[in-house]
Structures are given as C-alpha cells and as structure tokens.
Design a protein around this nucleic acid. Structure first.
Lengths: 143, 143
DNA sequence: CTTTATAGTGAAATTCAATTTCAAAATGAG
DNA sequence: CTCATTTTGAAATTGAATTTCACTATAAAG
C-alpha cells in the first residue's frame, strides 16, 4: 500500500519530467507514515524535528504534487487549514468531525451514494464529486 | 416571511441591548431581497451603488449578527469566500454547486438524514450539524 | 428636548494561511 | 563533467477575515 503510493508518485514525477529530490522523498515518507488528515503546518512542524532544513513552502508544494499525482486529496474542514488525506484507489469515504477534539473519522455508505445520484438525476445535475461531513461530538468527548 | 425575519432580527437586537441603526436596516433589507448565498463582498458591492457610505466592515459585522440572530447561516463552498444564506425556521437543506457557473441550488431528503443518524449512532457519535454538497455540472452548463 | 453613557461606524491596520517571487542550489541528460 | 532545467527556501505578496480606534449616532434618563 505504502509501496504502491510511492511508486505512483515516482511514476508521476517521471512522466511530468520533474526531478526526484531528497526533500520530496522525505516528505513522501513522512506523509505516508502519518495520521491521515494532516495540515501543511502540522506536517511541516513534524518534519522539522528530524529535518530542520526543509521549508514550509516545500512541504506546501509537495503536498500539492501528491494531490495532483492522485495519492492525496485536499480537504477543508471548518478550521481554516487545508488538510491532506491519503487516497486509496477507487475507495471513497466521508467524514465525522468532532467539534471538540478535532478528531476525524471516516465512513462510507452505499445507500447514501445512491440517494445522491437520484437527487442529482432529478435536477438534471451531473455529479463530479461531493462533500459530506457530520459535525458533532465523538464518543470520547461526550461527558 | 421577509416580515417575519425582520421581526426576528429586531427582537434579537432589542434583547441584546444593541441599537437599531440606519445601516443595519438597509443591509437587512438588501439581504432579504437578495439571492440566497451572497458573499460579504457581493452584498457590499451591491449595496454600494445606492449607499456608498456603507463600509465593507459594517456589512461584515451585520451579516455576522444575522447569523447569530438565526435569520442567516454561514457557508463555505470551495471558492474562498464565506457566503450567507437565508434560513427558514426549522427547515434544513443541502446544496448542489455547479463547478462551472457557480450556481447553487438546494435539496433536502429525509432518507438521507435518516442514514446519517444511523451512521453516527453506529459510532457513538452525536451529530450537531452536517454539511452535504454535491459538486458537478448543472443542466444549463452541460453542453 | 437635552444630556450622556453606550453602541455603532468606517478607514486603516492586522492577522493568518495560502501562494508567488527570486536568487541560489541541486538534478540528470548528454 | 557541463549545462539547461527544475527545486528549494526565505521573503514578499495576496486575499479574505477580523481587530483597532477615533469619531458618530442612538436611546434612555432626566
């Protein structure tokens, strides 16, 4: 899985005539090993411990490249930071976001997708993608 | 409807010990008559034609007040601007967003809400609110 | 109808993350 | 190794939201 994404990204780099650099490899490794849903800032700070020479901008640009290559996806939850999550090929899921602790968990539901298609069809709308997030309290934060 | 919201807002102003001002009335009137889903910028520019002395900041603060009073709701679609939409009491709906022309239409679906509740319950999550947007091409933009 | 304490206004300044710029450094094709 | 091209990282810029502050308007009390 991790290996597969590494290959996808390296292939992407090659196809586009881009260069393989030490920084990109380090950032890729850190991203793949990380929790899902990291923001640029979070990944940058995390990396800085072991690699103080890698700049915020490089992390920013590299995450963009991950998104373009298809191994990551950009997300906006309500906190003003752009987050990047891992993408498993073919898989789609939505999110549960805890408004207290910020934890993000995932779910997917075929019935829901079916209803979305019906709704869109009824209005002659062609869906390209969607966003579905449930905000509330995770079980740990209920007290 | 429009009258009802005017009253709700005026009551809110009174309860909070805030003051009724010419600017607030003008902005309220313009908001209620407007298309739904206006951004601060859009409403500000629209107002400026007839009321050049009203500042951006006042529109910004007044829209926030509308949201607090319950007659409006803040929304983030993908375009970097915060938008405000009219709220009908008790009513909830979701959005279809055209990625080409930016048109926003609405729908609501009871079955979908039921599924959301099931999903949350299964994870011991308590939903406070949700966000559901379908992005794609509206019928007018398919060609 | 004043007075006066309080809230509101608007311009300018600030914040905050994202994005761009640019000179120096690294990569890799030949 | 050489050189054209891409990358990098710091600094600058952008764009929207938000805060500050001096001045003005509101409305409650007298």
């Amino acid at each position: 899985m991790k290996r597969a994404k590494t290959k996808i990204f390296h292939d992407f780099i090659a196809e586009r005539g881009l260069k393989s650099t030490r920084q990109r490899d380090i950032i890729l490794e850190a991203f793949l090993v990380s929790d899902r849903h990291l923001s640029i800032e979070e990944l940058y700070l995390h990396l800085r411990a072991a690699h103080p020479t890698i700049g915020y901008v490089t992390v920013y640009r590299t995450l963009k490249l991950f998104a373009e290559s298809g191994i990551a996806r950009e997300f906006q939850f309500g906190d003003g930071q752009t987050r990047y999550e891992h993408v498993a090929e073919g898989e789609h899921h939505d999110h549960l976001v805890c408004v207290r602790c910020g934890a993000i968990s995932e779910f997917s539901n075929a019935a829901m997708e079916a209803i979305q298609d019906e709704i869109a069809a009824a209005q002659g709308f062609i869906i390209q993608h969607h966003k579905m997030e449930l905000y509330g309290l995770c079980s740990a934060c209920q007290r």
